[in-house]
Structure formats: structure tokens, C-alpha cells
């Protein structure tokens, strides 16, 4: 499978169809892979793909990163299903044009949740929670795909994969707050969750603004709730659920529980699933005259 991808990448680079291929290469130790930017056809053999490739590559397509300002006309990117969902969402938000991107789709059987848990194979013990109930193991939007794509029904509603969301919803309000209180006590606002997010595309993040200072950016408790609520609110209806925020968190705070819950809410209220359509606008920038308003007096 990876041979077909390499051949296609080589062909694209030799013909000058793309300027760069973004993919995965062997990392610093055998349990890790690293993102790699390939610009010369002779380097194509570096590309690999296996269940260790959990990094979300669409991050490098986000306009706030310098990679997008290098003057590359066309970028090829290796995408597993969930990454392609993120790319599709970026295109739907006009952050990216479809013809700037060449998507090399890969069939995916799931990813390892943490590199430390990699023991040579993928099994139920080390599979990432986002891969349970995944409907894009065969990617939906590709320019090149090794083999033939079977038809997959993707109309089913969004499934919350983390059991913690349901558990939290069953708790009483105070207990739920206590859970977040203890979790957020560890947060020292490194903003890793923002840095890895493919959808955080503000040029100046609201926490970096100083006039006025909406969220206190220093590493004390003040502003911790504010930051996490704001982050979750900005991603309502846009988060495609790659789970990178939780994976990047140095203090193991499960920040993507918020995103999962909000995906469920958006699905219930506006039957919208982010990342599946190139045209549909996300629900908070559109409206229906007869939207639900049972909470309004």
C-alpha cells in the first residue's frame, strides 16, 4: 500500500505537479513517527504509514503556520480518514482551496493512542478512543487512493466514543464541576491544545490579546476555566474530533471531552456533522427561522 503512495508521490514531484509532500517518516525512537516535508523525488522512500502515525498533518495547512507562506503552489498530503475530515472542514471554512491540495488517501485500521503503548501491533488495548466507531477508515475525499474505495454509509449520527462524556452527564452538577476543578488545577496554560489544533485559525488568539486582556494568560488559576470554555466554544460545530488536544496535553487533561459533548449537541440540535461536506457552512454562522428556542423566555 505504501509503495503505491510512494510511487504516486514520486510521480507528482518529478512532474512538478506538487511542490511538497507532507507525510510521516520514522521518528527518533522505534515507537514514534514524525511528520516530514518532502520536496525532492529521491527522498520519497522516507514515507511510511502504519498505526503509529497518529499526528494530525492538516495542522500544517492551517494559515496561521509559516509553512503556508513559503510560496508552495500545491501541496500533497498523506491523509488518514480523520485528517481528511479536518482538511474538508478547512476548505468549507474558506481557509484553504480544494485545488491547492492533493490528497493522498490511505486506508486506516485505527491508530495507537500513545507511542508508549506500541508493541508492534494494534489491538484493543492500545487503540485510540477516536478510532472506535470511525466511519472514515476508507477516506471520503481523496485525489489518489491505493486500490478501490468501497461504498460506506456515513449518514449515521455522531457517536461519542469516550465513555467519560456519558459518565459525566450522569453526574450531578456539583460533581461535574468538581471533576473539572481537579482536572483544571493541573493546567498551567501552555496552550499546547491550541497549537496542535488544525482549526484554531485566528491570527491573534484571544488569549494573546492584551487590550483588553480577556483571558489571563499567566500560569496561575485565574483564567483557566475561561480559557478552556472559550476554546471549546470557538470549536463548536468545527471540531472534527482528531483528539490531538488531549494527546498533546502535558498534564493529561482530557480537554476533548468538551469537544465531544459539543459535537453531540450540534448533531442533536442542527443535525450537522463537521468534516463531511465541502460546501455546508458550520451551524453557528447560519440559522433557520424556526430553530429551537425552548430555553428563551
Amino acid at each position: 500500500m505504501i509503495e503505491q503512495i510512494r510511487n504516486q508521490a514520486r510521480k507528482l514531484l518529478e512532474d512538478g505537479d506538487v511542490d511538497v509532500v507532507i507525510g510521516y517518516a520514522e521518528g527518533s525512537d522505534p515507537s514514534r513517527t514524525t511528520p516530514v516535508f518532502i520536496r525532492k523525488a529521491k527522498d520519497v522512500d522516507k514515507l511510511i504509514y502504519d498505526p503509529r502515525c497518529i499526528n494530525s498533518l492538516p495542522l500544517y495547512l492551517n494559515k496561521r503556520h509559516e509553512y503556508t507562506r513559503k510560496g508552495w503552489k500545491k501541496t500533497a498530503i498523506i491523509g488518514k480518514g480523520c485528517d481528511i475530515r479536518a482538511i474538508v472542514q478547512l476548505i468549507a471554512e474558506n481557509q484553504l482551496k480544494r485545488d491547492e491540495i492533493y490528497i493522498l488517501g490511505v486506508p486506516c485500521e485505527g491508530q495507537v493512542s500513545h507511542p508508549e503503548k506500541w508493541d508492534g501491533s494494534l489491538h484493543d488495548g492500545n487503540r485510540a478512543t477516536k478510532c472506535i466507531g470511525c466511519d472514515v477508515m476508507t477516506p471520503h475525499e481523496t485525489d489518489f487512493f491505493p486500490g478501490t474505495k468501497p461504498d460506506v454509509d456515513r449518514s449515521s449520527p455522531y457517536e461519542v466514543t469516550s465513555p467519560k462524556v456519558a459518565n459525566l452527564m450522569e453526574l450531578e452538577l456539583d460533581k461535574r464541576f468538581a471533576f473539572w476543578r481537579t482536572d483544571f488545577d493541573r493546567c498551567f496554560k501552555c496552550y499546547a491544545c491550541r497549537e496542535v489544533c488544525p482549526h484554531c485559525s485566528c491570527n491573534v488568539c484571544i488569549t494573546d490579546e492584551t487590550t483588553p486582556s480577556w483571558i489571563d494568560p499567566a500560569a496561575h488559576k485565574k483564567g483557566v476555566f475561561s480559557w478552556h470554555l472559550t476554546r471549546a466554544m470557538h470549536l463548536v460545530g468545527r471540531c472534527t474530533g482528531c483528539g490531538e488536544c488531549t494527546r498533546a496535553c502535558p498534564m493529561d487533561i482530557q480537554v476533548d471531552l468538551f469537544n465531544q459533548r459539543m459535537k453531540e449537541v450540534v448533531q442533536e440540535s442542527y443535525s450537522y456533522k463537521p468534516g463531511y461536506s465541502l460546501e455546508d457552512k458550520h451551524p453557528l454562522i447560519t440559522y433557520q427561522v424556526d430553530d429551537r428556542e425552548d430555553f428563551i423566555k
Binding site: 459525566l168 452527564m169 452538577l173 456539583d174 460533581k175 461535574r176 464541576f177 468538581a178 471533576f179 473539572w180 476555566f225 470554555l229 471549546a232 466554544m233 463548536v236 460545530g237 471531552l257 468538551f258 459533548r261 459539543m262 449537541v265 450540534v266 440540535s269 442542527y270 451551524p283 453557528l284 454562522i285 440559522y287 433557520q288 427561522v289 430553530d291 429551537r292 428556542e293 430555553f295 428563551i296 423566555k297
Partner: peptide
Amino acid sequence: NYYARRRNTTFRQLMDFHGIDIERIEFSW
């Protein structure tokens, strides 16, 4: 106000999940 309505539908759910009583947030026309 249509945008406000959608935004607050989701925001209330977010606050609820966070553990804040949504009785403390009132929306009225």
C-alpha cells in the same frame, strides 16, 4: 438575533457540561 439564539443554545449546553447551573443564565426576547 438568530445567530445569538444558535450560539446560546450551544453555550448553555457547554456551561451545563462544565458544571455551572444554567438557571443562572437567562435569555429573553
